[in-house]
């Protein structure tokens, strides 16, 4: 046995964790996905150092498109500081040493679970989605061979059976997330578990959208400026959730709100799900009607000094 000198780089991870061959394979799948908008491209998903359901698909897509100059933002449920977002951001800080940010406008790649930022994205940005179940037809047709055939032959009547069931049982289309869309007048696609509130943003978006499903080993994509239509009936048109109150902290309307329980006395408030958007608005001086509430300002947290000052005033 001869002792081999260990160089400094040896024993470390390759840039962005995955080896270059794997990244090439994933990039090929991404390119194919972009060429056929909404089509689910199979790929050889790797084991990642995180459990399935935590964004193994999204992480692989991000790793494959990430460059040294990129700035990464990671969102989980609209927020930058929940467990999943913190873990994935830390993962890429460690394995790729890229800059990270929570500001939507500064990011070049945004990996997300559930939400699309409220701020309009640009052509220079890539939005990466973590997808649990990529097949929109799955719950009605369990056979993969059959669903593939249905996509190939554009047999999408079944998707409307699901919407029909909603109306028959609830009086309206009760699907609120993973709401099926038709991409570029061809493939029906599941926009991952994003709320249907975000569906209009997917349509004609300036940024490139990449969807990665690690467990199911599928990648699909929507190129910039692509028509995306949410499925509906003529007499039950698609509509998004409406909130009767503005955000309690920043007063924003026409944004997606999360309900937050404040105490065990029935106290609650609705706040922006997109935490970066909310902070930015508060920094600009917008104040919601709950911002003065001590429980609420506690919720706004350390990261939003501006709101605290305002609340104090």
């Amino acid at each position: 046995m001869t002792a081999v000198a260990i160089t400094e780089t040896e024993g470390e991870y390759n840039f962005a964790y995955l080896d270059e061959q794997t990244k090439r394979m994933i990039r090929r799948a991404i390119l194919k996905g972009i060429a056929i908008p909404g089509y689910q491209v199979p790929f050889a998903a790797r084991e990642m150092p995180m459990p399935y359901g935590w964004g193994t698909g999204g992480v692989q897509v991000t790793a494959a498109v990430l460059g040294r100059e990129d700035t990464l933002k990671v969102i989980d449920q609209g927020s930058d500081d929940t467990t999943n977002a913190v873990a994935i951001r830390g993962f890429f800080e460690k394995t790729a040493q890229v800059k990270t940010t929570s500001a939507t406008k500064d990011a070049t790649i945004i990996q997300t679970r559930h939400r699309i930022p409220e701020k309009e994205l640009t052509e220079d940005q890539i939005l990466v989605f973590q997808v649990p179940i990529p097949e929109p037809l799955r719950f009605l047709e369990p056979r993969e061979t059959e669903t593939r055939k249905m996509h190939a032959l554009e047999e999408y009547g079944l998707m409307h059976v699901k919407l029909y069931e909603d109306i028959a049982h609830h009086g309206r289309i009760a699907t609120t997330y993973a709401y099926p869309v038709k991409v570029a007048d061809r493939y029906v696609m599941d926009p991952s578990p994003t709320p249907k509130f975000d569906n209009p943003k997917i349509d004609n978006m300036k940024a490139l959208q990449l969807y990665g499903a690690g467990r199911e080993k599928r990648i699909y994509a929507i190129p910039p400026y692509t028509k995306v239509k949410s499925l509906d009936f003529d007499d039950h048109p698609f509509e998004v959730q409406k909130f009767d109150k503005p955000c309690g902290l920043c007063g924003a309307r026409h944004v997606y709100l999360d309900e937050v329980v404040l105490d065990d006395q029935g106290g609650r408030m609705f706040v922006c799900s997109d935490s970066d958007y909310c902070e930015e608005r508060r920094a600009e001086g917008h104040v919601g009607d709950m911002a003065a509430n001590p429980a609420a300002s506690h919720l706004a947290g350390k990261s939003s000094g501006a709101a605290k000052t305002e609340a104090g005033e």
């Binding site: 009547g157 409307h160 049982h169 003529d234």
Partner: peptide, 23 residues
């Protein structure tokens, strides 16, 4: 389709040929 209602079972073919009016 045992998991969807009788109405949807009858309506499935109509939706498959492009009928998009729930009523």
């Amino acid at each position: 389709r045992m998991t969807v209602s009788a109405g949807a079972n009858v309506g499935e073919r109509l939706m498959a040929v492009g009928n998009r009016h729930y009523g």
